[in-house]
Computed example of a mutant assay.
Amino acid sequence: MDEDKGKSARRPRADALRNRERILEAAKAVFSAGGPDASLEAVAREAGVGIGTLYRHFPTREALFEAVYRREVQQLADLADQLKVDAEPCEALRRWLRANVEFVATKKGMVAALALAVDKRSDLTALSFERLTEAVGGLLERAAQAGEIRSDIGPEDVLRALIGMCYLHDKPGWQTSVLRLVDVFVDGLCRGRQGGD
C-alpha cells in the first residue's frame, strides 16, 4: 500500500498536465502562424501561463518543438484509428490527409528549430515516418478491401504525394489550395479503381 502511495505521489499533478497540454496547443497555434521566429513568450501568453511554467515543462525551444511534433504525429495515428470506425473508407482517407495539411503547416512554422532537434534525434524522423506510414497504410488497406480504392498504391506513395502538394506551395493561403488538391487526389484514387484491379 505504501508503494502505491509512492507511485501516485510521483505522478504529475492534474494542473501540471493541463498546463503542459495548454502549452503544446498554444505552441502549435503560435508556430503555425508565426514561423520559426515565434517566441516562447508568445507561446506562454497564448497558453495563459508564465514563462517559468513553460520552461519547467520545456527547458529549450527545441524540446518544445519536438514535443509538439511528437504530439501531432500521435494525434494523426489516433485519428486514423478513429476514422476506421467513424467514417466510410474513402472519406476516412480524405479526412486523414486533410488533417495532415494542418500538421505540415505547424511543421513548416517550426522547421528551422525542428531541424536541429531532428539532427540530434534521428529516431524522431524515423519514428514519425513509421507511425504515419502505418496509419495511412491501414486506411488504404481498409479502402482497398472494401473495393472503394485502387489497390496498386502504397502508403509511401500517398505520403510522398501529400508532401509534394504541401511543400510546393509557400504563398499565404497555401492550405486552401492544398486541401483542394487533396480532394482531387482522393477522388482520383477512389474513382480510378480499375487501375489497380
Rank of each mutant, 00 (worst) to 15 (best):
D4R: 15
S8V: 12
S8R: 15
R10P: 13
R10C: 15
R11E: 06
D15I: 15
L17P: 11
L17H: 08
L17W: 07
R18H: 13
N19Q: 10
E21T: 12
R22L: 02
L24R: 07
E25W: 12
A27L: 04
K28M: 04
A29H: 09
A29E: 04
V30R: 06
V30Y: 11
V30F: 09
P36L: 05
E41R: 15
A42R: 12
A44K: 03
A44F: 07
R45H: 15
A47I: 00
G52T: 00
G52E: 05
G52P: 02
L54S: 01
R56V: 11
R56E: 10
A63H: 06
L64C: 03
F65I: 06
Y69E: 04
Y69R: 04
R71G: 02
E72G: 15
Q74I: 07
Q75K: 13
Q75F: 02
L76F: 01
D78P: 08
D78E: 15
L79D: 01
D81C: 13
K84T: 13
K84G: 14
V85Y: 15
A87I: 09
P89D: 00
E91V: 13
E91F: 14
L93T: 07
R95M: 10
W96L: 06
L97F: 07
A99T: 06
N100A: 09
N100T: 07
F103P: 01
A105S: 08
K107S: 06
K108V: 14
G109W: 00
A112G: 15
A113S: 14
A117E: 00
R121C: 04
S122D: 10
L124D: 02
A126I: 08
S128R: 05
S128V: 05
S128H: 08
F129P: 03
R131W: 12
L132I: 03
L132P: 00
T133V: 14
G137K: 01
L140W: 02
E141A: 04
R142M: 14
A144P: 01
G147R: 05
E148N: 14
I149L: 14
S151Y: 11
I153R: 03
G154T: 10
P155T: 09
E156L: 12
D157Q: 12
V158P: 00
R160S: 12
I163C: 06
I163G: 09
M165V: 05
Y167I: 10
D170R: 11
D170N: 12
P172E: 09
W174F: 05
T176D: 15
S177I: 01
L181M: 11
V182F: 09
V182E: 06
D183T: 07
D183A: 08
F185Q: 03
L189Q: 07
L189W: 11
R191A: 13
G196N: 05
